[in-house]
Each structure stands twice: as structure tokens, then as C-alpha cells.
Amino acid sequence: MIKARVTVTLKTGVLDPQGKAIEHALTGLGFGGVGAVRQGKVFDIEIDGADKAQAEADLKAMCDKLLANTVIENYSVAIT
């Protein structure tokens, strides 16, 4: 079994209203010095019956087809 973590984040320059709301909330809670906050998504995925190269190819295909909107989001795949 191969375990992987996929991290999806907004591309630089794409507005992130949720990140901005979190930034303001943290400041309101007394956490001073908080800079720009960007939010994203993390997926922990287990793949059975594949070698590392095939799993990486499959994970990238999953990101391109479903997990990430590649027009506005970047993704990274880490196999553990």
C-alpha cells in the first residue's frame, strides 16, 4: 500500500477571501503580527496494488481531473 499526501493551494495572485477572513479573525483573537493567510486543502490518499511510479502518475491524474482546479490552483504530491 502506498500512502500519499496531496496539498492543493491557490496560485499566487488569485484572490483568497477565506484566507483573508481567517487573517482578520486571528488578528481579532489577539494574534498580532499575522501576515497574509492563504488557505488550501490536504488529501491523504492510500493506493493499493501500485508501484511508486504508477501511484505518482495516478495521483497527478486525480489532481488534474478532480482534486485541483488547475486554472487557479497548484498542487503537490508527496508519497510517504
Score class of each variant (00 low, 15 high):
L67V: 10
V34M: 06
I72F: 13
G32E: 15
G49R: 09
A4S: 06
T27P: 00
G19P: 07
I47S: 05
D48M: 08
G30R: 01
N74I: 08
M62V: 01
N69Y: 06
D48A: 14
K65C: 05
P17C: 11
E56V: 14
I2T: 03
L67R: 11
I2K: 08
A50G: 00
N69C: 08
T12Q: 11
A57R: 07
D48P: 08
K52G: 04
K65L: 09
T70M: 14
T12M: 03
R38D: 05
G19F: 04
T27W: 02
A53D: 12
A68M: 03
A53S: 15
N74F: 07
E23I: 12
D51Y: 01
T9H: 06
C63G: 05
I22N: 05
Q54I: 01
L67N: 15
G33E: 10
A36L: 09
C63D: 01
A25F: 04
E73A: 00
E46M: 09
A78M: 01
A36R: 11
E46I: 07
A78L: 05
Q39M: 08
T12V: 05
T7W: 02
T7A: 10
G28L: 09
G49S: 12
A4H: 00
M62R: 01
A68V: 00
V6N: 08
K65I: 01
Q18P: 14
L67F: 10
A53Q: 15
E46H: 06
A78V: 08
N74M: 09
T9N: 10
D51W: 04
A61R: 15
C63P: 05
K65Y: 07
L10T: 00
G33D: 08
G30P: 08
G30I: 02
Q18W: 03
F31G: 02
R5P: 01
K52A: 12
D44A: 09
